[in-house]
Design a protein around this nucleic acid. Structure first.
Lengths: 212, 212
DNA sequence: GATATACTACCGGTTTTCTGGTATATTTCC
DNA sequence: GGAAATATACCAGAAAACCGGTAGTATATC
């Protein structure tokens, strides 16, 4: 099915040992694959300092790093790496974000073995690789007026997280050694980016789209 | 590790082929286990009409039936069956419900292979079998003022939902034909129930605990 | 019939957020 | 090097939320 001159390295990054075992098992039917696995993003990044990987099967929910962020990072540092997201998250917006962040494909965890192998194949050939359910979600008419998730800066995310934890602008200003007025400027920009009228709805949207 | 006169049948009920593969792989190191697997509750129930199972590894999120309900059913019809829940749900309330419904144990999906085997062993000996993280969750009512999620009344939920959609108290009052002062009383009660200082953190908690 | 819970409503005062500006460093990227 | 994005900071006024009370009605529940 796949032909390569050198041995391909597939990295699995998922915090569920059971899932790792399953993936290894499914991939073991293919020869010529070297498989390495990690349960945290940090472990994988550490590995990459001295090693390489051709294909990454990346879970979105990780204990230390958000898979969306990790994907962006990885693509920046290793543009040739093929990243396939493997997740339970079936929300359209998350799939879109993942693809925007450089992922070659998106697999729901209920994908079959055949689909998995097919997606790896497609991904490495540079095609977009979606599992059947992911494809179904993406092909549904864009039901909503919500065409795109605003991207927040680091600072904005930081402040939004603190707001959602119940801190007021003055609290946050103290915590981050900023003027309270600066924090309020950030608040305003965040609300504007979400095109909504107050922070309450921003928090809801941000959590639902896994931005915080 | 385990000694039995007859061959034990382990049933895996999980809608993720990858997880099934993983579990099979992990259990294959043990001899004397016959393993059957199903991706829906209906499939498993159907199988049980002509067959038997000694141990069930049961996912809570299934496409057709809620794992909590299924567990209750199974225990009623097959009291000797050992049921171990395997789930991503890390909420205390869900673990409690599952054990009340007759499950012998609860494993988070990030459990290791050793834990899995240990739990199966414990479960069949009639002991309670929790994975380390599940045990950790269960053993921390130490933070006692927070015994789970506060229960909101119908009205409170309704108002909380509207707040999270960006409506102000006056908006909501108009919408629900109430005095704006009434809405604000509800707000205060909601915040009090969550024992927090403002609505921002309430919304975060409410979404995370699937109240809204 | 008594008690508890939920829903409704009000007052007064304080704090915080929101809105509309403007503006200057600093960092990032082409 | 220069443009764009990001982070910082300020002012002032309006709107909304938050806080600590109190209290009547209605509806269950025991």
């Amino acid at each position: 099915m796949l032909q390569h001159s050198k041995q391909l390295i597939i990295a699995i990054v998922d915090d569920h040992p059971i899932v790792i075992e399953g993936l290894k098992n499914l991939l073991s039917s293919e020869t010529g694959f070297e498989i390495v696995s990690f349960t945290t993003g940090a472990d994988f990044l550490n590995y990459l300092r001295t090693n390489d990987a051709d294909v990454v099967l990346l879970d979105i929910v990780l204990p230390d790093i958000n898979g969306l962020e990790l994907c962006k990072d990885l693509k920046k540092k290793h543009p040739d790496m093929t990243i396939l997201a493997i997740s339970n998250q079936a929300e359209r917006s998350i799939i879109v974000q993942m693809l925007q962040n450089g992922a070659s494909g998106y697999l729901l965890k209920n994908a079959s073995a055949d689909e998995l192998l097919d997606c790896i194949d497609k991904g490495m050939r540079g095609e977009q690789a979606l599992s059947s359910e992911a494809r179904e979600i993406m092909s549904r008419p864009a039901t909503n007026d919500w065409n795109g998730i605003p991207s927040l800066t680091k600072r904005e995310k930081e402040i939004l997280r603190l707001i959602s934890d119940g801190f007021s602008s003055t609290d946050i200003a103290e915590k981050l050694f900023l003027s309270q007025l600066t924090v309020e400027t950030h608040r305003r920009n965040i609300i504007q980016k979400f095109q909504t009228n107050n922070m309450f709805s921003v928090i809801k949207l941000a959590i639902e789209h896994k931005i915080i």
